[in-house]
Amino acid sequence: MGRKADNQQFRDACNRLGMTPDERAGFSDSVHDLKASGERGTANDRGDFTWDELLAHGRDYLDLVR
């Protein structure tokens, strides 16, 4: 996917989970930190996350912040 499509997918996943914009921004930082620490996704060889992986990580993140 292109950069905008990747960003669109991420925002779609955040909206599906009912995140606020603040939560989406924090989740973006958190997922990048996760990826940088070695926990990579399976969407491609860059280690990006699939739709289902984003939703799972998003639910974990919301459990932390709410």
């Binding site: 292109g2 905008k4 499509a5 960003n7 669109q8 779609d12 955040c14 599906r16």
Partner: peptide, 16 residues
């Protein structure tokens, strides 16, 4: 520029 439209994974695609 906007990229080609893609099917949304959610009910209401949020424009980037």
């Amino acid at each position: 520029p906007e990229e080609a439209a893609r099917p949304a994974d959610g009910p209401d695609p949020a424009p980037v």
